[in-house]
Design a protein around this nucleic acid. Sequence first.
DNA 1: GCAGCACTACTCGGATATCGTATGTCCGAGTCCAATCGG
DNA 2: CCGATTGGACTCGGACATACGATATCCGAGTAGTGCTGC
Lengths: 148, 148
Amino acid sequence: MKLSAGVEWAIHCCVVLSLAERPVPGARLAELHGVSKTYLAKHLQALARAGIVQPSEGRDGGYALTRDPAGITVLDVVRAIDGPEPAFRCTEIRQQGDLAAPPEECRQACGVAQVMAEAEQAWRTSLSGRTIAELAATVDGAAVRATI
Amino acid sequence: MKLSAGVEWAIHCCVVLSLAERPVPGARLAELHGVSKTYLAKHLQALARAGIVQPSEGRDGGYALTRDPAGITVLDVVRAIDGPEPAFRCTEIRQQGDLAAPPEECRQACGVAQVMAEAEQAWRTSLSGRTIAELAATVDGAAVRATI
DNA sequence: GCAGCACTACTCGGATATCGTATGTCCGAGTCCAATCGG
DNA sequence: CCGATTGGACTCGGACATACGATATCCGAGTAGTGCTGC
């Protein structure tokens, strides 16, 4: 199991944007964190598609959060970058091969899939309990604003 | 985030092995589930390295669980196949770029990494609360034993 | 002094290469069972 | 009839290709500010 590195970038970018008073260009966000401009742009597009950030074009344009950072959970950002599909995808191998179970026993989800789904739900629940605003409170906001 | 398909195979194999009274060859396990023999063999090797199954060679050889299925958690199997490293790996981008935080502020883990680590811990805790024996109880043991 | 206009520089967005890992496959080394042969 | 031996087939294990997605990059379309020009 591996989480895209872009997730880390995106969360840090959201924290910075929550402290900024004006739109910040994608290229500037990349400089602030020392990462690839063009690749970060890809992830910022994903955040925009998810409705987390709002891009503005032209000079003095950039990205800004669309709503209060206290209303943006870490899960929101992770799902925007990593996609909504679960990490575990049941391929129903219980219905394949010599051990194929009869269809009437497969009305409800496979036990394995249930266990994995519960674990992922616990993971999501944990992430949905934390917001960008909480993370922003752990950094030196004044210093960030001075650097942007 | 994506979990290897081998995880699903491995869990199902452990369930079957928990119901079997004698070692089951890797090739037979593949037939039972309708998956690639050789690729499943790779994952069975991983289970063996993790001490979950015990291979026996020669004719009538195969794989068997090393301990009571009630003592094998789903997390054990997932870690054996997927590896122990966490899905989220903090690259300490807070120390890079124009926003680089001074080292004295980085004595403890980055807030982002903390949040992600807590979520993964919740995931692991959920998986570690479920055992192979529980999963085996949800299938028709007699039918499986008759098919093996 | 003010309004309109053209210009320019800056922004995002999607289409395009490259790399690493998961996936899938192959063949060789070792081992256990069983049939066979001899006593 | 019993035991040792030889044979054989079956097992696992690691080394070798392939496919797909994450990573990284480039260039074009569009826009907002800005300076200039004319009134």
